[in-house]
Amino acid sequence: MITIIRKELADYFTSIRVFILFLLVFLASAAGLYASYQGIRGIEPGTGFVFLRLFTSSGEVIPSLVTFIALFVPIIGIALGFDAINSERSSGTLSRILSQPVYRDNVINAKFLAGIVTLSIMMAATILIVSGFGLRMIGVPPTTEEIIRLFLYLVLTIVYGAFWMGLAILFSVLFRRIATSLLSSLALWLFFGFFYVNLIVPAIAKTTETFLLLQRFSPNTLFQEATTVLLLPEWRGAGILTAGEEIAYMLLNPLSLGQSMLIIWPQLTSLISLTAVCFAISYVLFMRQEIRPT
């Protein structure tokens, strides 16, 4: 299996696709940094977590870095997974690999793991670069808690990216044509990122409770809420108890790390289980699929 992972990683890192993705991510982080350069002056000192504001404050026009990341992580995940299986099938390499003495699940496991490694490298690089430049820019070093929060945020983005990659891999097992699997993944991303949250849920939800409940069916919302709780400790919107009007009367006191963790626990586990479900379905389908070379 290590052989396959190594080959997949080599493929990723020599492909133009991943190069473009890296470029995109770095452009986005540059834009995000610029946004926080504009916006970070506006925050009051003494609220703590100045360093985290690098990621969350937005400029006059440019949205914040976390908005960019929330936008790009699904695209990266989809780009890493949409042709995982069907490209091998259509180029005739799948039947050749599977006639070697390797277990069939090694192939799909290796692809998934190689994708996660690539994703992790990308996201870790982004966050580290932004932190480095940000440190130079604002001159305030991060506290230990901020470092832990950033690390948790990194884990969260990787899980979120892994979910979209798992979904894309599922479509690549399901559909023989590469274009079909790419378009289906992108369509689902658009649906959850835009139509579902902005159009469908407001249209059918009568109360705030149902509104929040329905929104949380979207992985995008789960990610956004978890991000906000992790990086904006003052924010209280994501708890079960705080859904509703009373949110307006709350004091703007930052939550402790443990409390933040407690709040995002459901979001995080939902994302992990969604990833696991996607992967499990693709795994089962792949194991049972006929490998006709034609």
């Binding site: 493929d11 020599t14 492909s15 180029s91 005739g92 390499t93 039947s95 050749r96 006639s99 070697q100 003495p101 390797v102 277990y103 070379p293 034609t294």
Partner: peptide
Amino acid sequence: PLKVKRLAGYLPENVGFYNN
């Protein structure tokens, strides 16, 4: 299957390779 695959070489009908 693994024991058979260790012994057997296979040339599929539309053989394909990694183009890169």
